[in-house]
């Protein structure tokens, strides 16, 4: 009985690992140079990104077992994206909260000024320490 529960949980955890790459960028026309950078990383199975004139936010979904190296992956990707977008402030995060916030921005489709405020909000959130 108890063994079957453990097997069930194991099967669940393995099944949850295999999901296809998911990419959403807002506004959608800015995708050209972001896509190839992230696709090179096989530790990431999807990303959602928001871009305006000053900043670029990238929320990435890191594979379960690569999450041990979350900070390293974030740093590496930040450097690479900074190279591609030298004039913009880059924030890369594997945090679920940032992912949810980016998703809500994409759903809302805000105007320019609102977008700026929302991006600032996420930035200050992700800088907070425990």
């Amino acid at each position: 009985m108890k063994k079957s529960i453990i097997f069930f949980l194991l099967a669940l955890s393995l099944g949850a690992c295999s999901s296809a790459q998911e990419q959403v960028i807002f506004p959608s026309d800015d995708s050209t140079s972001l896509n190839p950078i992230i696709q090179k990383h096989d530790t990431i199975h999807g990303y959602k990104s928001v871009i305006n004139e000053e900043a670029i936010l990238v929320a990435i979904s890191i594979n379960r077992f690569d999450r041990f190296n979350k900070t390293k992956i974030e740093k590496k990707l930040t450097k690479q994206i900074e190279k591609a977008f030298p004039e913009k402030e880059v924030l890369v995060s594997g945090d679920q909260k940032v992912m949810w916030e980016v998703e809500s921005i994409i759903e809302q489709k805000p105007k320019k000024e609102d977008l700026k405020k929302l991006i600032e909000k996420i930035k200050s959130l992700s800088k907070e320490e425990t």
Partner: peptide, 11 residues
């Protein structure tokens, strides 16, 4: 989401 719950359970 579910995989987070499972890893939390196991670890």
């Amino acid at each position: 989401m579910i995989s987070s719950l499972v890893t939390a359970f196991i670890v």
